[in-house]
Amino acid sequence: MKNSKPARKHSSAFVNQLLAETSDVEKAQINNRMTLATRLDDLIAAKRWSKSEFAAKVGKSPSEITKWLSGTQNFTIDTLTEISLAFNLSVGELFAAPRPKIINHIHLLVKAIKSEPIPFNESVGKKTIDSTSGTFNSNYPAQNFSLSTFSNAQS
């Protein structure tokens, strides 16, 4: 029979002691460095930049960026300013938790004007969405589709 036991839990006196010796200020410093590192990593990913591309934008080497992302960097305000400008954000926004994208309204309209059978040919069935208007373009002659959304997403 398959053993489905999880691992035994181990409590370490060494680890406990070190955690107890860490001041609240030290904990907050470590947390802030790691928070900023993860935020930078997420921002770079959102822009679809490589580390090298981001490095070029802030005039640093890729190895410097690796260090920034490692959660060990103590940034100066000048460096934070350079980073924020690369992302077109304020320095304060670098520390702000990204707002989750919440769609709070969707309007979906599908109209069937004509209901005749559609003859098969290769061009029928090719559909595209016009990304600017949200209009669904189809070779099906009898259908129209519109979609509108409102959200709080940041551009």
């Binding site: 955690l19 030290e26 790691m34 993860t38 992302l69 490692s70 959660g71």
Partner: peptide
């Protein structure tokens, strides 16, 4: 250094996960 490593691992476990970047 040891204290820093223990605290980073605590943060990884509780707040950030073992992200590749670390």
């Amino acid at each position: 250094e040891v204290k820093l490593i223990v605290n980073k691992l605590y943060q990884i476990g509780h707040n950030f996960g073992a992200r590749e970047q670390f």
